[in-house]
């Protein structure tokens, strides 16, 4: 097992600068959820110069559309969705102070450029481990876009939420380097 780095949200520049691809982290604190439709709305608000439903500065966004919670449960299954669909939107959010993105799969060059310029890290969680990841979510509350159902923006409180640094602020990319290491 790889030793994990504890990360309390919100994150500072110093927090993200110490992270390198391949690091295993455990999140504590607040994480917001948003996926395709919510990203489009957030970007529209930014373009129009309007206020966002939450302040992005130092925050972490998790790309997840959870399944409905059973009675007595905080949330349903809550694993990551593919991040590439958020690539056109992410640079706008990063420029507004977003410090971390959590999802699965590699990001575009446009996102990487914004990550390096504004100091934002991209984390991978395990796709297909939604029941396990849900265990680390202690509180869940819809704060915007309830009409989007599973795509609404939620404010999650997490404890020891496991992720891997997939792409760091120095351009390090485990999707490239990791694969290179094992290609035969």
């Amino acid at each position: 097992m790889i030793r994990a780095i504890m990360l309390s949200t919100p994150l500072s520049d110093q927090d993200v600068e110490k992270l390198r691809m391949g690091d295993r982290v455990l999140f504590d604190g607040v994480v917001y959820t948003a996926r395709d439709a919510a990203h489009r709305r957030l970007v529209d608000l930014i373009k129009e110069g309007k206020e966002l439903p939450f302040d992005l500065s130092g925050q972490v966004i998790y790309y997840v559309g959870p399944s409905p919670a059973r009675p007595g449960h905080v949330i349903g299954s809550a694993g990551p969705t593919s991040s590439y669909r958020m690539d056109p939107s992410s640079p706008y959010l990063i420029a507004k102070g977003l410090k971390g993105m959590v999802g699965k799969g590699p990001r575009s060059q446009g996102v990487v450029d914004a990550m390096m310029k504004y100091k934002c890290v991209y984390f991978a969680t395990v796709g297909g481990a939604g029941a396990l990841l849900a265990k680390a979510i202690k509180k869940s509350e819809v704060i915007a876009y309830e009409d989007l159902g599973p795509e609404a923006i939620r404010r999650l409180e997490v404890e020891d939420f496991p992720a891997i640094v997939a792409q760091d602020v120095y351009g390090g990319n485990l999707y490239v380097e990791g694969v290179k290491r094992y290609a035969r």
Partner: peptide, 24 residues
Amino acid sequence: DIFRQLLENAKIAKEEGIPLCQDT
């Protein structure tokens, strides 16, 4: 580590009746 998480996930899903993945 990922294989371990997937095996643990299958156990939790079965025991608690939670979907294995949120994308059902």
